[in-house]
């Protein structure tokens, strides 16, 4: 384990997902994070209701939204995010380790479909709020980097379909 001061970024996007924030605020999780070498936790809390808890060792910061979302991700060593496809993609493209937490309160949650697929491809880990402690034990270094897509593929495909090529 290295002892660099690590930073965690927690994001709920535009969803109402107070349960994720409350889960990470639990002593058990904070203790775990601190033992992993984290010194700072930045929450992106959106518009949901939450309590601004403090901690003796860890610095907890709360912000509704960031203009420079990617900047926040790049500054961090680990990202814990809601299961939105857009957020997942943005984080994966930065190459930062990602844990996706499924919001079980959402009905018709086909977002876990994507998280499951990305986990089976070893790009990220996903879990529910209750499973977060165990998931933090997983080896984050063994996650694979999400490849950059070949943007030209789609263009070539469409040109062929349309009779341009």
């Amino acid at each position: 384990m290295d002892f660099k001061e690590k930073r965690l970024f927690v994001t709920v996007g535009t969803t109402q997902f107070s349960k994720l924030i409350e889960t990470i605020q639990q002593d058990e999780i904070l203790y775990k994070l601190s033992s992993m070498g984290f010194k700072e936790i930045q929450f992106q809390v959106g518009t949901g209701k939450y309590e601004q808890k403090e901690h003796q060792v860890l610095k907890l910061k709360y912000t509704p939204f960031f203009d420079d979302f990617l900047g926040e991700v790049t500054k961090s060593d680990l990202v814990i995010s809601h299961a939105g496809a857009g957020t997942c993609l943005e984080v994966l493209h930065t190459g930062k380790p990602l844990i996706v937490v499924i919001n079980e309160d959402l009905m018709d949650n086909h977002q876990s479909e994507l998280a499951e697929q990305l986990q089976s491809d070893e790009y990220l880990y996903f879990c529910t709020c209750n499973e977060l402690v165990e998931t933090l034990d997983k080896n984050l270094k063994s996650l694979r980097k999400y490849p950059k897509p070949n943007k030209q593929n789609f263009s070539n495909y469409l040109n062929k379909c349309m009779g341009f090529a």
Binding site: A85, H110, Q111, E113, L114, Q117, L158, C161, M162
Partner: peptide, 14 residues
Amino acid sequence: TKIVFVESFCRTQT
């Protein structure tokens, strides 16, 4: 008209 449908990135199984 040619209709080209790209299924969303979220849809992996269905």
